[in-house]
């Protein structure tokens, strides 16, 4: 996936994955029938690339790369265990655990103090917004349209 990323970072999106909400940059249909895809989400300067394989009735999450800033510096490289089903919550939790761990390690090396719960809460907020804000917006608009919520 890393070699593809050199090209992806320079390329334009090719579409959107509606089943994951990712902006797609690469897609390959294997002879097995699985669609291997690389998509991206962005939030607060974080660029999250997810590699996943979509089949009939299931999707597997293979790898996540997290970059930061316009220079796209690699922060985290997460390999998921084989057979991890794709689920936004799973991806979000994997990134949250790794980002928090790297942050704690960096702070300890630099002798910087931090409150663990505050760090987790802020990382959770950023990732939650990245993964679910569009869904929440859509469901509230739908709920208002059909009269579930008052407009």
């Amino acid at each position: 996936m890393e070699n593809s990323l050199v090209n992806i970072l320079k390329s334009q999106p090719i579409g959107k994955s509606y089943s994951t909400g990712l902006t797609l940059y690469q897609s390959y249909k294997a002879t097995s029938g699985f669609d291997y895809q690389i998509g991206m989400r962005e939030a607060s300067g974080l660029y999250i690339f997810e590699g996943f394989a979509e089949g009939t009735g299931c999707a597997y999450l293979n790898k996540i790369l997290v970059f930061f800033g316009q220079d796209k510096q690699l922060i985290a490289d997460i390999n998921l265990p084989q057979g991890t089903f794709y689920n936004r919550e799973t991806a979000k939790e994997a990134i949250k655990q790794v980002l928090c761990k790297y942050f704690y390690d960096a702070c300890q090396r630099e002798n910087m103090s931090f409150t663990q719960s505050e760090v987790e809460e802020q990382v959770e907020d950023i990732l939650d917004k990245c993964y679910f804000s569009e869904s929440r917006r859509a469901v509230l608009n739908w709920a208002k349209e059909v009269g579930i919520l008052k407009a």
Partner: peptide, 12 residues
């Protein structure tokens, strides 16, 4: 959501 083609929620 059909109109915006947005995934609202999923569960495995």
């Amino acid at each position: 959501d059909i109109r915006t083609k947005t995934l609202i929620c999923e569960k495995l």
